[in-house]
Write a protein that binds this DNA or RNA. Sequence first.
DNA 1: TCTGGGGTCCTAGGACCC
DNA 2: TCTGGGGTCCTAGGACCC
Length: 405
Amino acid sequence: MRRTILHIDMNSYFASVEQMCNPFLRGKPIAVGGAPGTRTIVIAASREAKRYGVSLGMLHHEALACCPDLLFIEGDPAKYTDLTQTFIDICKRYTDRLEVYSVDELFLDLTSWIKSKEDALRIARYLKEDLRREVGDYLTCSVGIAPNRMLAKLGSDMQKPDGLVVIDDQAIPAILEWVEMVDMPGIGPRLKIRLGDLGIRTLKQLGGYPLASLQQLFGPVNGQRLSDIGRGIDHAPVPYVDDIAPTKSMGHTYTLSADTRSKDEIYGHLLRLAEKVGRRLRRDSYEGRRVWVYLRWDDFTGRHEAVTLPRYIDDGYEIYRCGRQIMDQWYLVKPVRLVGIGATMLKQSGKQLTVLPDEHKREGLVKAQDVINDRYGEQTIQRARTLNVRLRTKVGGFKTPHQFH
DNA sequence: TCTGGGGTCCTAGGACCC
DNA sequence: TCTGGGGTCCTAGGACCC
């Protein structure tokens, strides 16, 4: 069955939102990044900044070298996720098969509603018009329409900003011939190098390569996946909107403002991060049975270790104790630049208050902490995938677009 | 004043059981 | 007593995504 998949990609999302909320920033080159004083990189650049060559992943000083007038804005995840929810709500009017792929990307399956390419274009234009009207014309999106997710995503990438690209059956052969590996989602820098060594540079060459060889080189699953990519094949469905995959792991990492050899300092961060993990576990009603810790040295190598517990936990201090037990064995061979801790082997807890008085007391304390920290606590970038379950963050001082008109 | 932070999936090897 | 095979689970590490 021929499908009609839409991919929606918000253009320069974080930067555009900042410009939309603050008219002073409009028309100016801005970069969104982490808090001042932290070692941070550019995580979003406005189109004005991109024109100067500012790009994602750049260091502060690199970005400034490209564009001396660049304005740095500290990111406000709550603001972005809140707005994303608006997009999701609008898109839900068009289909119940919708996946929130990230905070600024959505996949929609419109197969049931569409008979022709013209239908698809018409619906895409309605959708874009809805977004424009209800969110504001400062934010634009690029839309790709294709028979599968991979090609739809490719399509949305082909025209920016404010694009609308249909990749139909006639267009596919040309796409496979021209598109370079580097542009394909699923083929990262490492794979690109390995494929290049095999003389494979375009999708068409990849698709023409013997499947058996690809599987031998990259494993059965990855080999098949690569071969499919090369032929423009992608059978992955767009799930139903309410069909949310459960979270499999939760963790936090922190890059120190300066490298350290002090275990005390590391443990301080470890405790803070572990409490953060615990709060998120409880907030989303999860418990974990495995705790991992990670240190990254100054040379960017690192050490990782995990421990499996006899029971499930969701308490930050317990998580910290497990992590610390591991790290107590470690010798700090080099200065440390990053500390991380997290929980895996998660299950949904569906937790009830326990009867034992001591436990009860502990749980009450934990709950109070959650409330306080959710209100005043740190900015946790939520997985966009969980957005349609709940959006807890409230946006202070966020102006809706029509207030500017 | 080199390189953030949040995840997922696949692979390969070893342990263990039948 | 020796030998083999299959299946499953666990774990570390690598690659990728936004």
